[in-house]
Design a protein around this nucleic acid. Structure first.
Lengths: 383, 383
DNA sequence: TCGATTCGTCGAATCGATTCGATGAGATGG
DNA sequence: CCATCTCATCGAATCGATTCGACGAATCGA
C-alpha cells in the first residue's frame, strides 16, 4: 500500500531520489541511501510492478508457450516449465504460462499487451503459427527444440544433439565389448512426421555403425505399447541376437522391459540396455545406463537466449549483463554458460541487420552418472 | 504500439469512450461501438496491461506457488500447473509460476508488487511460511491439498478425499468377490510426517474393512523401491494370501509389479491389483483398475476458489461472475461446478467478518474408466 | 411548451513509478 | 575572489489506460 511518495516523505527526499536509490541508476550519497532504505524497510514498501512497467516498458516477465494438444499432457513439458522458471529467476525474470490450446491468440495478447518481454516457445512445429505471430509483432523469441533442418528465420534455439546422443550410446556399447547392437528408435509416426529428434536419432545410430564397424540393427518403435513390445521381440530374435539394446522411445519402457523379462532374457547379464532421452520422472524408472535429456542445461540455455534477445529497446539483441549481474546466482550462470557447448552462430545468416548473430545451441549429450554398461556374456562371445 | 488515443482519434471519439466500448462499462450507441471496434481492428490495438493494471488495481493474473525442494521435481506438480493454467484462462486469468525454493520471498514480491490478484499454493505444509506471509499481506489465497486436521485459518482449499478413495477401492474389491484384500499404503516416511493423504488412506482402508467385514491386511510402503517390493512380498506371503491388492504408493509401481511377476503371480488371474492416486504420466503405465487423482477437477476447483477469493477490493470474497461470464468456456465452468461435491462451508468459522464463508472442497473419488476388477480365481474360493 | 429525465459522450483527474533537464552547494583553479 | 566544474538532489513530464462528474441533446409527461 505504501508508494514511492510515502518513502520519499518519510526519508525527507524527492520521489525521484528514492527511485535512484532503488535502481542504482544515479549516484547517491551513502547518507541518503541508508535513510531511504530504512524508510523502505519501515514501510514495507514494494514498487508496484504495473507502474514500473508502464513507464519503463519492461515487465521482467517471460511468457512460456507450453504445447497443449487437446487434453494431452506430456510430463516433460511440466518439467521444462518448472526448470525454465527457475532459470528465469536467475536472470530476474518471472515466467507466465501460456497453455491455450491455440496458443497464437494468447501469445499475441500477452506480447502486444506488454505483459512479457520475450517468449519461449516449446516444441516448435515446422510451420509454427505462434512463431510467425511473434515475428510479425517483432517480439523477442527463443525456441526449445528446433524444426527440421530449417533455420527458423534465424531465431535462436536450443536442442539436444540427438544424433550425438544415440551415437554415443552405441559407441559406449561397442566400447564395452558388444559387437551386435540393437536400436529401438522413435515411433514410426514420429519418424513419419519428420520430428527432428527422431530423424537425428536414426542418423546417430547409422553414423555409429559406420564408425565402429559394429553390427547395428535399427527398428522404429510404435505408438502402441503392445506393438512396441513386438518390435523388441523381433529385434532380439534370431540365432545370433544382439547383446546390447539402445532405446530411444521410452514411453512404453515398462512394457518393453516386461517383454524382455518374458523372453527369459535377464538384465544386465544377457542384455545390456541403454536408454537415450526423456525420463520425465526421476522416480520409478529402473536404474539402467542412460543418456538423459539434460533438462536443466537446456532450460538454462533457452532462458538465457530469450533474455539476450531482449534488446535495450525490446527488439534487437544485446548483452543483458547489467541486470543479470544484480540477481544472477552463480550456479545458474555457470550452468548456463559453461554447460552449453557448440554454440554455432550463423550457419545461414538470413538475419536482418548487422547486430550480433542469433545463437543456436546444440547441446552435447553425456552419459548420465549411474550403473556402468556391462560387457557381453563371456560364454557367448561377440563376433 | 497503438494507444487508446490513436483509436479515439481514428474513430473520432474521446479516449474514455473507447474504454467504455472495450470494457462494456457504460452504454454506448451501436453506431460508435462499431466505429471504435473497426478502428481497433485497423490499428491492431491491444490495451497495455500495465496501464490497465496501474489504474484498475487488477492484474488478471494468478500466481501459482509450485513446491520446489532443492533439485527435486515431482511430475504431478507440472501436471497441476498446466491444468491450473488452463482453468485460469477460463476465468480470464493468466498464471505466473513461482518456483523459488524459498517461495516466501518471491510470493511476497509478486503479491505486494501487485503482479497478481491471488495466489494458489500447492502442497501446503502444516506450518506454511508462504501461507502466513500471504495472510499478513491480506492477499487472497486458495490451497491445493490441505494440512492435517487443521483448518488453516479458514483459507479455502481443495483436496481429494483420500479416505473415500482407498475405501472405495477396497469395497470394489470386496464387491467383486474378494474376501482377503491387501493394502500397500503410503510410504513410512509420509505417514511419519503425518501427510494428510497418507493418514486418510489408512483410515479409508480400516473403515472399509469394518464396513465390509472383509479381511484387510495393511502395510506401509517404503521410499526405497527395493524395500517397497519387500513389503509386497510380505503382504502376498502366507498360506492364505490375499486375492486383491490395493496400492496407494505408486512411485515404485514398476518395481512392485516386477516383484509380483517374480513371485510367479499373474495379473489379473491370481491377483486383482487396484491403484489409488497419482499417475503423473498417462502413458507407459499398465492398464489396471484404478482410482485416479482427478487432476482436472481439482485444478478447476482450486482455480475457482482463488478467483472467488478476489473480492471487488481485492480482499473479501464475492462472486466473480461479471468477468467470468465474458470469457468462461462452458466446458470449464461445468467441470468446475458440477465436478466438485461436498463443499462443506464453515466447519469452524474463525473467519474475520460476516462475508460468505470460505469454501473447502473434498473431492469425491471415482473409479477411472478402464478394465474391470476381476473376481478371485474359482479354484481358490474366497473364505 | 416547459421542466425533468434519460442517453450518449466528453474532459480531466488519477494510478505509481521512471527519467531527464535544472539547480544549488561545494570544490577547484587561476 | 570570482568563474568553472562536479556532485547530489529536486521537479515535472510521462507512460496508457480507467473512471467519475459534467454536459448537451433527445425524449417524456403534463
Amino acid at each position: 500500500m505504501a508508494t514511492i511518495k510515502d518513502v520519499a516523505t518519510l526519508s525527507g527526499v524527492a520521489p525521484s531520489t528514492v527511485s535512484y536509490v532503488l535502481n542504482g541508476s544515479r549516484k547517491i550519497s551513502e547518507d541518503t541511501r541508508t535513510r531511504v532504505l530504512d524508510a523502505v524497510r519501515e514501510l514495507g514498501y514494494h514498487p508496484r510492478a504495473s507502474a514500473r512497467t508502464l513507464r519503463s516498458a519492461r515487465s521482467d516477465v517471460l511468457v512460456l508457450a507450453v504445447p497443449r494438444e487437446a487434453g494431452k499432457y506430456r510430463a516433460m513439458d511440466g518439467r521444462f516449465a518448472v526448470e525454465i522458471s527457475d532459470a528465469a529467476r536467475g536472470h530476474g525474470f518471472d515466467v507466465l504460462m501460456m497453455t491455450d490450446p491455440d496458443g497464437v491468440r494468447g501469445l499475441r495478447r500477452i506480447a502486444a499487451g506488454g505483459q512479457a518481454d520475450a517468449a519461449i516457445l516449446m516444441a516448435v512445429q515446422e510451420e509454427d503459427a505462434r512463431l510467425a505471430a511473434m515475428r510479425e509483432l517483432g517480439f523477442p523469441v527463443a525456441l526449445l527444440g528446433h524444426g527440421n533442418e530449417r533455420d527458423e528465420w534465424g531465431v535462436p534455439w536450443v536442442d539436444l544433439d540427438w544424433e550425438a546422443a544415440v551415437s554415443l550410446a552405441v559407441r559406449q556399447a561397442v566400447a564395452a565389448g558388444h559387437r551386435r547392437v540393437a536400436f529401438l528408435a522413435s515411433a514410426e509416426h514420429e519418424i513419419a512426421a519428420r520430428r527432428g529428434y527422431a530423424l537425428h536419432g536414426l542418423d546417430g545410430a547409422r553414423a555409429a555403425a559406420r564408425e565402429t564397424g559394429a553390427e547395428v540393427v535399427i527398428r522404429p518403435s510404435a505408438g502402441d505399447p503392445e506393438r512396441a513390445a513386438a518390435r523388441v521381440r523381433e529385434l532380439l530374435a534370431g540365432s545370433e541376437p544382439p547383446t546390447a539394446l539402445v532405446i530411444q522411445h521410452l514411453i512404453p519402457l515398462t512394457r518393453v522391459l516386461a517383454e524382455i523379462a518374458a523372453l527369459g532374457i535377464r538384465l544386465p547379464a544377457d542384455l545390456a540396455v541403454i536408454l537415450v532421452g526423456t525420463l520425465p520422472d526421476e522416480s520409478g524408472t529402473p536404474d539402467l545406463p542412460r543418456i538423459d535429456l539434460p533438462v536443466g542445461r537446456m532450460s538454462a540455455a533457452v532462458t538465457e537466449l530469450a533474455v539476450r534477445a531482449i534488446g535495450a529497446d525490446g527488439r534487437g539483441a544485446g548483452p543483458a549483463e547489467t541486470k543479470a549481474t544484480a540477481t544472477l546466482s552463480a550456479t545458474t550462470k555457470s550452468a548456463a554458460t559453461a554447460g552449453t557447448t557448440a554454440a554455432d552462430s550463423a550457419a545461414r545468416t538470413d538475419g536482418d541487420g548487422p547486430g550480433p548473430a542469433p545463437r543456436r545451441e546444440l547441446i552435447t549429450p553425456r552419459m548420465t552418472p549411474g550403473p556402468a554398461l556391462s560387457p557381453p556374456r563371456a560364454d557367448r562371445p561377440a563376433t
